[in-house]
């Protein structure tokens, strides 16, 4: 499912939650929705899932305005998520699956598959209140994807998971993407953004301030910083290249190596730059330091 929002504006009593927010989520990709707390991410998600209506603007699904029945083709895992504490896990999962439009038989069959896959069959008859947070999250995740929707929206999906289960969820998301599902991921975990997302939009103070492919954005934010790792612990003191094309930002010993960070000053090609080092030292590593999404996030927001 391809999703677009066009100039969405939403005003609450005393603050503007979204102002002309337009995003484009291509089909079969993972889209990162980033932004500080209170920027308007959740409002945008709620508008996409038709929980609230925008004051102006529209949501387009495969090029046409979204309709009520599209909600059956969306799986949404909200950040504020819970379960009915007094219900049994299986009963609860069945209920949510059926609310999402599955017949009793389909819901049961799908649940069995997912419970097998997540290895939680033994919880089926336990009460929700007996589950740990991570366990409850698994049940939540299942009930988000159970109806096989084409658009999946995950709001902070990794919170509450230990690294093993976070990896499990990550892999599930990638698998879903490979099946052609469109995924919107809203998170503050920038590492997972770099790892999973094809595109991102950064929302700050109710506006989309940055949008595009993760790769492109990082390229655009490059700051000509390069890293070298050189062999030889004896020249830590006598390292000396001075050249008008760069200056050294830092140098630090690392075991028997030395790590250098330099900033390119002038327009010289990478191979020319490298040559300066290769000629004189035993170079173990050379790479351009691209800004992390974390850096870009902080730089853009502040």
């Amino acid at each position: 499912m391809e999703l677009k929002t066009k100039n969405i504006t939403k005003q609450y009593a005393n603050h503007l939650a979204l102002s002309n927010a337009s995003i484009e989520v291509p089909q079969g990709t993972v889209f990162g929705l980033l932004g500080p707390n209170g920027a308007g991410k959740t409002t945008l998600i709620r508008i996409i899932t038709r929980i609230t209506a925008p004051d102006s603007g529209e949501v387009l699904i495969n090029g046409r305005p979204s309709r009520e029945e599209d909600t059956y083709n969306i799986g949404y895992l909200p950040e504020e998520r819970g379960l009915y504490r007094k219900m049994k896990v299986g009963e609860q999962a069945m209920y949510l699956a059926r609310l999402r439009g599955l017949s009793k038989a389909d819901a049961h069959r799908e649940l069995m598959k997912w419970f097998e896959r997540f290895d939680i069959m033994s919880w089926y008859n336990r009460k929700v209140e007996e589950l740990s947070k991570g366990m409850a999250q698994k049940v939540q995740f299942i009930s988000t994807v159970i109806h096989n929707p084409d658009l999946l929206i995950f709001d902070e999906p990794f919170s509450g998971f230990d690294p093993v289960n976070a990896e499990l969820i990550k892999n599930e998301m990638l698998r879903l993407k490979n099946e052609g599902k469109t995924i919107i991921l809203s998170t503050h975990n920038m590492e997972s953004v770099e790892e999973l997302c094809d595109n991102i939009a950064l929302i700050n103070k109710s506006q989309v301030v940055l949008q595009g492919k993760v790769f492109d954005i990082r390229q655009q934010h490059r700051s000509d910083i390069y890293r070298f790792r050189l062999r030889g612990n004896d020249f830590a003191k006598d390292f000396e290249i001075t050249h008008p094309t760069f200056f050294v930002l830092s140098q630090a010993p690392y075991h028997e190596f030395i790590d250098l960070r330099i900033k390119k000053q002038d327009d010289i090609s990478n191979s020319e730059l490298a040559k300066l080092f290769f000629d004189r030292y035993d170079v173990v590593g050379f790479e351009e330091e691209l800004p992390t999404m974390n850096d870009i996030f902080i730089k853009t927001v502040s």
Partner: peptide, 25 residues
């Protein structure tokens, strides 16, 4: 557009019939 390897295709028409969730609630 979708690759319902998990679900048989027959699921989709049923989805549309189940618009009324009030009974479930």
């Amino acid at each position: 557009m979708s690759f319902p390897h998990l679900l048989p295709c027959t699921l989709y028409p049923k989805k549309r019939q189940m618009m009324n969730n009030i009974n479930l609630i």
